[in-house]
């Protein structure tokens, strides 16, 4: 299959992963330009409806990023995100969404390189799939 350039929507928490993304940028690290970042205050803010909304308006994949377990600015937001997103991944897979399209990860404010790596990996993963046409008529 011809590979394509996936569009990825990333929900990044304000305190760690968004700062991590920022660091990757200011340190001029290379990462694929496929990602569109939406900043949320905490990964715990991400409702499964965000994920489906992104997929339904044409994102090929969704990446939810939060602070590492134990590091959440609001103490437990990422633990809830973990439960919520684990369920979303499993359940939507059951409904027919390829699991690669929903990715969750942790990335701290100092991990600019990790951010770049994660984006690279997720982009590569999604390139193996076909473009998201799930919501086409």
């Amino acid at each position: 299959m011809d590979s394509f350039e996936p569009k990825i929507v990333a929900f990044c928490c304000n305190w760690c992963s968004y700062a991590g993304a920022d660091l990757a940028g200011t340190s001029r690290m290379q990462y694929p330009p496929n990602i569109r970042i939406i900043r949320v205050m905490c990964s715990g803010r991400v409702n499964p409806s965000f994920v489906l909304k992104a997929l339904s308006v044409g994102a090929d994949g969704v990446l939810v990023l939060g602070c590492h377990p134990g590091d959440c600015h609001y103490l437990t937001g990422n633990y809830r995100a973990r439960r919520r997103m684990a369920i979303a991944k499993k359940f939507l897979e059951y409904m027919g969404v390829e699991p690669e399209r929903i990715q969750v990860g942790w990335c701290s404010a100092s991990e600019g390189s990790r951010f770049a790596e994660l984006v690279g990996e997720v982009t590569d993963n999604l390139r193996q799939l076909s473009p998201n046409r799930m919501f086409n008529d």
Binding site: P69, G70, T76, Y79, R80, R82, R83, R84, M85, A86, K89, K90, Q103, V104, G105, W106, L118, E121, V122
Partner: peptide, 16 residues
């Protein structure tokens, strides 16, 4: 409630 609780380590295999 399920969504108001957590274990320090769980479901990590689903997380990058």
């Amino acid at each position: 409630p399920l969504m108001a609780a957590y274990q320090p380590e769980e479901a990590e295999d689903l997380i990058r």
